[in-house]
């Protein structure tokens, strides 16, 4: 009687790992640059399609394909910030929202034009079907476990990068006071671009795991954005470890909601988010 619920709880925690990956990049860019990239989800889907091309057209292994995508993701994020977003950042938040919103629509429809509306998936080979038996008839997917471990590792690495390295200190400095940074010769535009580059590396990593875990199509971006957004707000703005907690909460909510009635999966996640927003707007683990 209890076993299916425990099973769903476990699946939800593991799903939380994937959701954390969606959120880390958004958390970083939102925490540092004080704006939310509305195209975040669409960039994840764009990276998924890049992986699809690399694995099907070139026959590459998904891991190799992801490793190839990451440096390009960094350069893309760096360039996007330096040459487009930097022109509107700091003037008025409205403009950044509108530019990233426009990008979101362009990417979504560009993918639709290029690949059609079909649902796609990247094959993970044997890893996809391998399971670990935990007794009592509970099985968890090996790939899902890997994803969760990778998510924890990603948060840990980002945390080290931000709090233990020189570039991390610079990123936190511009996040604290961008005008002061400019006054002492820290070039905030460059540091923003590096932060966006790092954010896009996490987008590439998230795409690597998502493209094997779930189906995707050109219109999948907004759902990913909303999940990433909810995870960031649930965890507490700017808190990386909070994102892991937020991801797990959202994963469990969706998983349990889906066990009760499959059509309630998405709605259960949104409702938990709105409830937390109502009673604890600062999130579960606020940074300050």
């Amino acid at each position: 009687m209890l076993v299916p619920w425990i099973n769903q709880l476990l699946q939800g925690i593991l799903l939380g790992g994937l959701y954390t990956m969606f959120a880390t990049g958004l958390s970083l860019s939102a925490g540092v640059m004080r704006f939310v990239n509305i195209a975040h989800g669409d960039f994840i889907v764009l990276a998924c399609f890049a992986l699809l091309v690399l694995t099907t057209a070139l026959g590459l292994n998904p891991v190799v394909a992801t490793l190839i995508v990451l440096p390009f993701a960094f350069l893309f994020g760096f360039g996007l910030q330096r040459f487009l977003l930097q022109r509107v950042v700091g003037q008025n938040v409205l403009l950044v929202i509108l530019v990233t919103f426009g990008l979101s629509i362009i990417i979504e429809n560009g993918l639709l034009e290029g690949f059609g509306a079909d649902t796609r998936k990247v094959s993970g080979g044997w890893l996809e079907t391998a399971t670990v038996a935990l007794g009592q008839g509970i099985n968890v997917g090996l790939f899902q476990v890997f994803t969760f471990i990778a998510a924890v590792a990603l948060v840990a690495v980002l945390d080290l990068l931000l709090y233990r390295t020189g570039i991390g200190a610079k990123i936190r400095a511009v996040s604290d006071d961008v005008a002061a940074a400019d006054l002492i010769g820290l070039s905030s535009g460059r540091i923003y671009a590096v932060a966006m580059g790092i954010s896009f590396v996490t987008v590439g990593i998230a795409a690597g795991f998502m493209s094997i875990w779930t189906n995707f199509d050109p219109a999948s971006g907004p759902t990913r954005l909303l999940i990433a957004f909810e995870v960031v707000v649930l965890g507490g703005l700017g808190s990386l470890w909070g994102s892991l907690a937020g991801g797990i909460v959202l994963g469990i909510a969706q998983s349990i909601g889906g066990q009760w009635d499959i059509t309630w999966q998405m709605l259960a996640g949104h409702i938990i988010f709105l409830l937390v927003l109502a009673v604890r707007p600062q999130g579960l683990f606020p940074r300050y």
Binding site: G166, R172, A173, D176, D177, I184
Partner: peptide, 18 residues
């Protein structure tokens, strides 16, 4: 105009780096 969330050492280090 210090960076309030950075430690004293990190603030000083930024001076060294720029």
């Amino acid at each position: 105009r210090l960076f309030p969330s950075l430690t004293v050492e990190e603030n000083l280090q930024l001076g060294w780096e720029v």
